[in-house]
């Protein structure tokens, strides 16, 4: 069964509002990675909201079409049980950190999933180590720098161990070393069978992905294997995605 199936997806933020996503169709198998790119305001973040099921649960939003994750229609899932199917790291790290310490922040998800304390401890330590932020364990997330906040937000989602990961420009605030580390982690997760969808402007950091999607004003401008598309400099330049 395919991990992600999107059929005729359209979205507007309010009933008479403009179409932010227009009639999108695509499929992904388990263990594949998709990179979404496009100019700002083209609907990348909205697509992330839709795929994670958040948009479908908004009061005013109007979603048409269907999104199936592992065969399950996400609009029929309860908001909170979505966390078992999909983990999302938002673009703005400030809006997703709310705990008094990094340790509490990361433990929050596994605690909600009712894991025994021993397992929670193990997961917290594991993701801290994985992302190289073990030294921040006692820190208050509020006082961290922008890049560190993003790493903590990513760690908090990884601790939930969801089969599908959605990352909205997680690498944009990271230094070179952290970008490399996160890229390695993603590669490893992908090999372990996780499905990953990442919004990214700098395509050179995610060359190990399978698919590339270019969005233009809410519609699929192109979709296909990543390598031939990143090699097609003419197309990328025409889309204003490179200098």
């Amino acid at each position: 069964m395919e991990a992600v199936i999107v059929e005729d997806l359209s979205y507007r933020y309010w009933p008479e509002g403009p179409l932010v996503l227009k009639n999108m169709n695509f499929r992904m198998a388990r263990g594949e990675m998709l990179v979404i790119t496009g100019l700002s305001g083209c609907g990348k973040s909205t697509l992330c909201y839709c795929l994670s099921g958040i948009a479908g649960h908004r009061r005013d939003g109007v979603m048409q079409g269907q999104i199936l994750l592992d065969g399950k229609d996400i609009q029929k899932l309860r908001a909170a049980s979505l966390a078992l199917e999909v983990g999302i790291v938002f673009q703005d790290p400030d809006s997703q950190l709310f705990s008094p310490s990094v340790e509490d922040e990361i433990a929050f998800g596994p605690e909600n999933l009712c894991l025994p304390p021993g397992d929670i401890r193990a997961r917290v330590d594991e993701v801290l180590d994985l992302l190289g932020i073990s030294s921040l364990i006692e820190a208050n997330p509020y006082h961290l720098s922008g890049g560190e906040k993003h790493l903590v937000a990513l760690a908090a989602v990884l601790a939930l161990d969801p089969p599908l990961l959605i990352l909205d420009e997680v690498m944009s605030q990271l230094d070179q070393q952290a970008v490399q580390r996160v890229a390695d982690v993603l590669k490893r997760l992908k090999d372990a069978g996780k499905t990953i969808i990442a919004v990214e402007h700098r395509l050179e950091t995610v060359t190990f992905a399978d698919h590339l999607m270019v969005l233009e004003r809410g519609a699929l401008a192109r979709w296909g294997p990543i390598e031939p598309m990143t090699a097609d400099r003419e197309f990328l330049a025409a889309q204003h995605l490179i200098d």
């Binding site: 994670s52 958040i54 908001a79 909170a80 049980s81 979505l82 966390a83 078992l84 983990g87 999302i88 938002f90 809006s95 997703q96 950190l97 709310f98 340790e103 509490d104 433990a107 929050f108 998800g109 596994p110 605690e111 909600n112 999933l113 009712c114 894991l115 025994p116 304390p117 929670i120 401890r121 917290v124 908090a156 989602v157 939930l160």
Partner: peptide, 18 residues
Amino acid sequence: VAMESRGFRAYPRRTYLR
């Protein structure tokens, strides 16, 4: 939204690290 997307209220009870 951030809390819910990390499973808050997924179950009627939850466990605690400490």
